[in-house]
Design a protein around this nucleic acid. Structure first.
Lengths: 172, 172
DNA sequence: CTTTTTAATCAGGTCCCCCTGACTAAAATT
DNA sequence: AATTTTAGTCAGGGGGACCTGATTAAAAAG
């Protein structure tokens, strides 16, 4: 029987982490672009960016299905991203109904800084700590996948699966 | 010189964790209340709840300053929370300009389930892993605090400081 | 060669976070 | 008592994440 107190400690730290992270990159983004640009991350436009950096040149429909969004929402996000010069839209030549979305260099860069960049706060950890953290997170993530897949109404999970595959490619 | 590869691994896992967590409790909340109620957490209404569960009976102004929001935004969130029966508003008797905000039992409960509850995914970790995680997160959080405080334009940090104090009280 | 299906679009809507400006009522100052 | 500061309110706005409904153009099927 694992120690409840220890669980609570960890839980508290995790919450704290979430909170601090949140304001930390709120500040980072504020200094960066002052007005406009908000965190993005794993919703809406950010989600699109992530999906595209996993596989570029998808159609809007494809994106919508992968991200579990309606085509209209997807269109909205795509258009917003186009305005920000992070993606481009072009009609498919093989099927002229389709619109193919591609990351611009800027978009790719944006997606990468959202992810690939090693956050500052990890650089002060020792190798041992990094290993520990990685293995713990692996376990936790596996749990979360389970949680999702069991509770799931046959939606959402594929997204995560896809993106996490991409992460695996990227980091291992 | 710490191993860059290890850092990348950990970073990847962390991102993955963020992502999965996000959809995991998206699903959880969806099953819970179906329509309406979204995550809350560390912004807007959620932030208020957290601050209040740290110290109840604050005035709107107090809340605004602590949370680094305008009084108008604060008022908006407070009103929304009142509608949800999570907080109450009452005029101060000593200074009739002030409006004192108090958590209802429901509000307190809401704040607690946002935090105190040990997430499922922690319960499968061993004691050792929990200790490791806690100590690593402590280190990471300290780093983030530094990051915030140095980059800071004398704002934001106090909120975090306050809430994290509260967390410390709660979990230790 | 018509249907039907498919990929997109426009229009309009809901709720969220957060801000500026204008204004009132009650305290604190002068 | 008159002025200024303080706590709130209302009105309005910008951006974001999503959604439903209706419509168009192009491809697939009958």
């Amino acid at each position: 029987m694992p120690n409840l107190a220890k669980q609570k400690n960890a839980a508290g730290k995790l919450i704290e982490f979430g909170m601090i992270r949140h304001t930390a990159d709120e500040i980072a983004h504020r200094n960066h672009t002052d007005k406009g640009e908000r965190p993005l991350r794993f919703q809406g436009q950010g989600k699109l960016l992530l999906a595209l950096s996993q596989e570029d040149g998808l159609s809007q429909k494809e994106l919508a299905t992968r991200l579990n969004l309606t085509v209209q929402s997807t269109a909205e996000f795509v258009n917003k991203l186009v305005k920000k010069d992070l993606v481009t839209k072009e009609k498919s030549t093989t099927d002229r109904r389709k619109t193919i979305i591609r990351l611009t260099d800027q978009g790719r860069a944006a997606a990468e800084t959202e992810t690939a960049k090693v956050p500052e706060f990890l650089t002060t950890l020792t190798d041992t700590e990094l290993d520990q953290l990685t293995s713990i997170l692996t376990k936790i993530n596996a749990n979360l996948y389970d949680e999702i897949n069991t509770a799931d109404d046959t939606k959402s999970s594929k997204v995560q699966q896809a993106v996490s595959d991409w992460l695996r490619d990227w980091f291992l």
